[in-house]
Amino acid sequence: MPVFVKSGGMVPTRSKDVTNDVQNPLDAVTLTVAAGATGHASLFEDDGTTSDRKQSTSTDIRYTEGGQLAALRVDGPRRAWVWTWPTGTGRARLPRVSF
């Protein structure tokens, strides 16, 4: 299924296939970034059982670019991240990442 994302947009997906979310917490994320503009996103995760926001967590993601340089900053729980962005010839890895 094609997904259209504007420049600076980000699409987080699980890096691994899982049978269910309850027994498999989100510990590995692939973040696809649409280059071409600066972008910001928040990934909100509830605990799956209550409506108490204190039991939930949020990850703040910022992508900036200028000239030949691009940077990605992720503030949130530690987990395995893979960053990619679509290019005219396939997928490429982001050169600079900070936590």
Rank of each mutant, 00 (worst) to 15 (best):
A71K: 13
S56P: 04
Q68G: 13
S42K: 09
D27N: 13
V82M: 12
V33Y: 01
R91I: 03
A35W: 05
G67M: 10
F4Q: 10
L69P: 02
A37Y: 02
F4H: 04
S7N: 12
W83H: 14
D52M: 00
R53K: 05
D27F: 03
G39C: 09
R62S: 12
T30D: 12
Q23A: 09
D60C: 01
T38K: 06
A71S: 13
V97F: 14
V3G: 00
R53N: 00
V18H: 08
S51R: 04
T49L: 10
A35G: 08
T32L: 15
A41C: 05
K6T: 04
I61H: 07
T89C: 00
G90P: 10
R96I: 05
G67T: 08
V18M: 11
D52E: 08
G39A: 02
A92T: 14
T32S: 14
A41Q: 04
S7L: 01
S42Q: 09
G9I: 03
D75S: 13
G48W: 05
A41E: 02
D27C: 03
G88I: 02
T50W: 01
G9A: 12
S56D: 15
V22L: 09
R93Q: 14
F4C: 00
V22I: 04
A41W: 05
G67H: 10
A41V: 06
I61F: 09
T87A: 06
V33C: 10
M1Q: 07
A34E: 07
S42V: 00
R78T: 14
V29Q: 06
G88F: 00
A34F: 06
D27R: 15
G90E: 04
D27Q: 05
T64C: 04
P77D: 12
A71P: 00
H40V: 04
T38R: 05
Q68V: 12
N24C: 00
Y63T: 06
V18E: 04
Q68E: 14
Q68D: 15
T13L: 02
S15P: 00
G88H: 02
A80E: 15
V29A: 11
R53G: 00
N20W: 01
S51C: 01
V33P: 10
W83N: 08
V11A: 01
T13N: 01
V22H: 02
S7Q: 11
T57Y: 10
V3M: 06
A28S: 15
E45G: 03
A92M: 09
T84N: 12
P12H: 02
P25I: 01
L69C: 04
R91W: 12
D52C: 05
Q23L: 03
S15K: 10
Q23Y: 00
Q68C: 01
T19L: 11
V29I: 14
Q68R: 12
T59G: 09
H40L: 01
T87R: 04
Q23R: 05
P77L: 13
A80D: 15
A37F: 04
S98I: 14
Q68L: 09
D17G: 09
R62Y: 06
S42I: 03
T50Q: 02
P95T: 07
P95I: 09
T30S: 13
L69E: 15
G76D: 08
N20A: 05
